[in-house]
Design a protein around this nucleic acid. Structure first.
Length: 303
DNA sequence: AACTTCATCAACCGCTCGCGG
DNA sequence: ACCGCGAGCGGTTGATGAAGT
């Protein structure tokens, strides 16, 4: 048990501290973290020691090297499959820690939040006082209750849904993706052209409920996962049925298919501004495939 | 050259889980 | 069954350096 009243050092680790920690692990193995402090070896909490070992001192870590294209693809795919289970995802990536994966994903997400915020703020400026209805709405998607959603796997997420007022005990919810975000006309942003196009709601065909997959159908861990969004697919019209499969197929062919839809429904809202329906997008957990897709689309747009 | 913005990384915090008493 | 503890995980923050203006 760690003493709570003793001095605890925080902040960056020194080389000397690292040596002490490594020495401890060599003697005792990567455990008994709290004893490091209780024995007076280091003024660090066991938690801190463990983190230091796992993220920096552990052998065979790829410290300092950027994620390869293959690693990026795997993270994208595994995130779509497992959600934000960074530790689990990291087990598929030799030499990478959960912290690495988490940081990678966080950076990636921030980048697109920024890109798309720019895009949507310009959309608002450009559409101010123009179109009476600029609304993007996709028909309701009914998600059947997932018989596989054991409390262990889904419990935490359900709390999140409730937080978002999106999914609680209800067996259905409204998924409201934004078509123009699937393939935003970002090239037009700088040209100050209106980006949004009104789509009559009655012209949007319903999306079938994602198929259900049992846990037993989950792919086993492997290092050679295919990547879903190859360039050829990016040339398609994203709103064409086939292109929806580009997201839907990948996402639903796994245990988290339904969860994916649920979670991302919570991330997208429609806002009302001055009588206009303006997309008010929250990209908290934007679909990774969509982000990847947007990345491809926007990488040449010099935003 | 100075300033701003962005990306990356290390580390901390709060929470949950599992285990032993 | 309950409680306390250690370990592990995910979210978040702050520091730092690179790149852009």
């Amino acid at each position: 048990m760690e003493r709570t009243n003793a001095y605890v050092k925080k902040g960056p680790w020194t080389a000397e501290e690292d040596e002490v920690l490594i020495s401890h692990v060599n003697k005792c193995g990567p455990r008994d973290w709290s004893s490091i402090r209780s024995k007076g070896l280091l003024p660090r909490t066991g938690k801190s020691c463990r983190l230091r070992w796992v993220n920096k001192l552990r052998p065979n870590l790829k410290t300092g090297s950027k994620f390869s294209a293959e690693e990026e693809r795997m993270v994208i795919q595994l995130q779509a499959q497992f959600g934000n289970k960074w530790a689990k995802i990291a087990t598929y990536l030799p030499g990478r820690t959960d912290n690495d994966v988490k940081n990678f994903w966080s950076t990636r997400r921030k980048r697109f939040e920024r890109i798309l915020q720019k895009s949507t703020s310009l959309q608002f400026q450009n559409n101010k006082g123009k179109s009476p209805l600029v609304r993007h709405e996709i028909p309701e998607v009914k998600v059947p209750p997932d018989p596989c959603s054991s409390a262990v796997e889904e419990g935490t997420s359900c709390c999140n849904y409730e937080t978002h007022n999106c999914f609680s005990n209800s067996q259905e919810f409204r998924m409201v993706p934004l078509p123009d975000l699937v393939k935003p006309n970002l090239q037009n942003v700088e040209a100050e052209q209106p980006i949004l196009e009104a789509t009559p709601l009655n012209m949007i065909s319903p999306i079938d409920s994602p198929p259900h997959y049992s846990l037993s159908q989950l792919p086993q861990p492997q290092l050679d996962l295919p990547f879903l969004s190859e360039c050829k697919e990016l040339d398609q019209d994203p709103m064409a049925p086939d292109s929806l499969d580009m997201f839907g197929q990948e996402v639903t062919e796994c245990e988290s298919g339904q969860k994916f839809f649920k979670e991302n429904a919570a991330s997208t809202k429609l806002g009302e501004v001055k009588g206009l329906s303006i997309p008010n997008i929250v990209f908290d957990d934007f679909p990774p495939e969509m982000l990847d897709y947007l990345e491809t689309l926007t990488s040449s747009s010099e935003l």
